[in-house]
Design a binder for these strands. Structure first.
Lengths: 219, 219
DNA sequence: CGGCCTATGTGACCAAGTCACCGACGAATT
DNA sequence: AATTCGTCGGTGACTTGGTCACATAGGCCG
């Protein structure tokens, strides 16, 4: 039988590790986290540096009124930048992370994390690039929320989430959170899109009828 | 006569440099940039890692319509995280940086920057912490724009900018950009605040009359 | 069937942004 | 002093988006 590759080899950014670093990381056993579990909330103390091996974790910013907005999703091979923030800046978490699927992850303790940063160029690069990527993406979220109108953001979200047959499995609430709006607004927009024949609606799903029609709304 | 301290000693985060690193940095001569100069625009290629020694640089995100929102200000001792993004992530600038005062800065070439990251723990910490700080602050901007109503954001901006006597030197347009809104909305809000007796208005300045009154709007 | 949870629909209203234009002030020039 | 010009601020009409309160409606399970 062929053994599954070790998790270190399943994290794309972690190539080029020297032997010692690799052995230190290999010694850590991945843990599994059930779907729906909240990995951390605002105010939680940061104790580990998390690297995702399988599944998906969504990170949300929560407002005082309970409204939430999706900051980014963490996919396999990516690290949790919120942890980096906390470990380096001594701050607590300011966002909330939810396991959207069952999740497999590696938790690197603070002390090892800090030591690897000093000793391993490859590890450092991994952490830095993850950082850069997240800052970019948070800036993009800000740009969209601040400058792009709902119709365009919604169309983009639908196109992004549609599978091969054009089906989007999401509630209006989920779409609203993803683009930083509220359910009622999304419901109304979707109804307009459906009257235009661009989508058809069903409980829990949206069928994209015309990708080109939606794409025309992106400007 | 007493010589002014070298610029390396005027950058708070750069303590604890080893001798070699320090000498490499000391060899770079600061440059001066006149007030109003645009240091970079979206799409510009990143060539250097900038550290600010004196003055203030504001970094804005610009929307398609020309609307701008202040991402953060760079003050002495701080680095330009946009540069870090570009140097590590191979991306071009996505924001615009404007010298708000005459500015004194040190431009560290890409090659030296990358080499120092590998050889100097102190330099690495400096870069990382700057990174963490900016990501935090961009997330805060997003949180405010997405969740906090204009009145509270404006009150916060006024309190933050008021000098000892409560005077704020800013145009309505500047305040609007700082909090991610538009001039007309700010003008109207300010008029309401002035009718409530919390501020008095003049061309180019706002006099805060009641800090406690403004503070009550922050919730 | 009846309860219950979740998803969605809807009207009224409020908050914020857009557009177009006006007037007021001040500095520089004539 | 009068003219010109650029910046700053005021205003009305309108559109978009968010809030609140409540109404339906489907699906699941006892």
């Amino acid at each position: 039988m062929t053994a599954a590759p070790h998790w270190v080899d399943r994290a794309p950014g972690l190539g080029g590790l020297d032997g010692q670093t690799r052995r230190q990381l290999e010694a850590i056993r991945p843990i599994t986290i059930p779907k729906g579990h909240v990995l951390f909330r605002p105010g939680d103390e940061v104790t580990c540096f998390g690297v995702l091996i399988g599944g998906r974790v969504d990170v949300y910013l929560t407002g005082a009124t309970g409204r939430e907005i999706l900051l980014y999703s963490i996919t396999p091979g990516e690290s949790c930048v919120q942890s980096t923030l906390g470990l380096l800046g001594e701050d607590d978490y300011s966002a909330e992370a939810v396991a959207e699927t069952d999740v497999e992850a590696v938790m690197i303790p603070r002390s090892l994390f800090l030591s690897l940063l000093g000793t391993s160029e490859a590890f450092r690069t991994f952490v830095f690039q993850a950082f850069a990527k997240r800052l970019q993406s948070v800036m993009q979220v800000l740009e969209r929320v601040a400058f792009i109108r709902i119709e365009a953001r919604l169309a983009a979200a639908l196109l992004e989430r549609a599978d091969d047959s054009g089906l989007v499995r999401a509630t209006h609430q989920e779409l609203a959170t993803a683009i930083g709006s509220v359910r009622e607004v999304i419901s109304r927009r979707l109804e307009i899109l459906s009257k235009k024949g661009l989508v058809s609606l069903d409980r829990g799903t949206i069928q994209v009828a015309s990708r080109t029609g939606l794409a025309a709304l992106l400007t």
